[in-house]
Computed example of a mutant assay.
Amino acid sequence: MSITDTETDSNTAALSRAGVSIWLDDLSRERIASKGLQKLIEEKDVVGVTTNPTIFAAALAKGESYDEQVKELKAKGADVAQAIFEITTKDVSDAADVFNDVFLASNGYDGRVSIEVSPELAHDTEATISEAKRLWGTIDKPNVMIKIPATVEGLPAITAAIAAGISVNVTLIFSLERYKAVIDAYLEGLEQAAEAGIDLSTIHSVASFFVSRVDTEVDKRLDAVGTDEAKALKGKTAVANARLAYELFVDEFGTERAIELQEKGANRQRPLWASTGVKDPSLPDTFYVTDLVTHGVVNTMPEKTLDAVADHGDITGDTIVGKYDEAREDLAKIAAVGVDVAEVTLLLEREGVDKFIVSWHELTDTVAKALESA
């Protein structure tokens, strides 16, 4: 759990007090077995974990933590797909147990562990729904979230999963337009769940809005424009985009439709800041944390970013509310110098799916080799 009030001088405690839930963007069996994950809960206020194919590929490529299970899987004749399913669901199930106290103490608000449907299904609605239900049913822990990408085909899968009572982490959101569609898919799922008699209070969701990748692509284009005016706008797009996403969150969950569902026990779908590791060395390494602080959001950080925040993150209170006009002005200036942010976000969605598919293939290859040599 979080550190006690007598120790609340830490930067991560200050971030938590400001209303940001700190989730770790990493998981491995070694991290669970060594009690390293528990240590992060106790010392750095970590209250959740997110995973993706890249994380699992990296975890499986090193160390011996998986050897015993791989031998058992080979002995029972498991193929690569089944081995991946059993290995990843075990890690997530075990991590969910580590976070169970956080989950209970926060009444389900935090203590969450996310696992992603195969990225190869990102454009197949029915297969995504089926896989989400399979993952949810296999792990069978109330503090798990199933990650579904916010592709056009993913939107109806999000609705169907929520309607079935499954808690969902919507991933790979880059644009405000798509984010609005994600919120609508969530609310529609809640309406269907209510009709089916499901207790809405048991369904939780986060919407993972990607941050640093937006700056990486836009800044490359600003450099190509080459003017002093364009270069002065570097490092401004992602934070502006995310701040306006939070404004949209406040507006959409204040509508009559959303309030009616909340009165029936529904939870608001929290914005989650993802891809918060800083890639531009000219920016502070805590930039996508300290500049995106407000109540009721999640920031999922790679450990390097978490360590930087703990060491020197300057948490000064809310850095989102009240900055919406400034964000709109920044985006208008970026458009004025000729960078099309809408085009960038579409590109990033495609690239995001493609990168996860590459990682999935790496994971497949790693598991295939492990089964071979077991």
Rank of each mutant, 00 (worst) to 15 (best):
L283A: 08
A335C: 00
I334Q: 09
D325N: 13
A308T: 03
D285F: 07
I320P: 07
H312I: 07
H312L: 04
A308W: 03
N299G: 08
K323V: 05
I320H: 01
K279I: 11
V339G: 02
T305A: 08
D318P: 06
L306P: 05
G296A: 05
D311C: 05
K304N: 14
V298F: 15
E303H: 04
I320L: 12
T316N: 13
A336S: 12
Y324R: 07
I320Q: 05
I315D: 04
G338A: 07
K323Q: 14
A310W: 04
H295Q: 13
K323D: 10
H312T: 09
T286D: 06
V337C: 09
V298E: 07
T290H: 06
V297A: 10
V278A: 10
T305W: 04
T300Y: 06
P281H: 10
E303A: 02
L331K: 03
P284W: 02
V278G: 11
G313H: 01
A335V: 02
K333Q: 13
H312C: 05
V297F: 03
D291V: 00
D325T: 13
I334W: 05
Y288M: 03
A327G: 06
A310L: 02
M301L: 15
D291I: 03
V339P: 04
K279W: 08
T294L: 01
D318R: 04
R328M: 02
Y288E: 04
G296H: 09
H295W: 11
D280C: 05
D325Y: 02
A308E: 06
F287Y: 15
D325A: 15
A327M: 08
V341F: 12
D291L: 00
D285S: 10
K333M: 05
P281F: 02
G338W: 11
L283P: 07
T294C: 14
E303Y: 13
D325R: 11
G338L: 01
V298C: 13
V341L: 15
G317T: 08
I315R: 04
S282M: 06
D330L: 12
D285A: 00
V289Q: 03
V289S: 00
G296Y: 06
V339R: 00
I320T: 08
K333V: 02
K279C: 11
E303I: 13
L306H: 10
K304Q: 14
E303L: 12
D318F: 01
L331F: 02
D280H: 03
S282Q: 15
G313A: 09
V337S: 12
A336Q: 10
G322D: 10
G296V: 08
G338H: 05
V298W: 12
D340Q: 05
P284N: 01
V337Y: 09
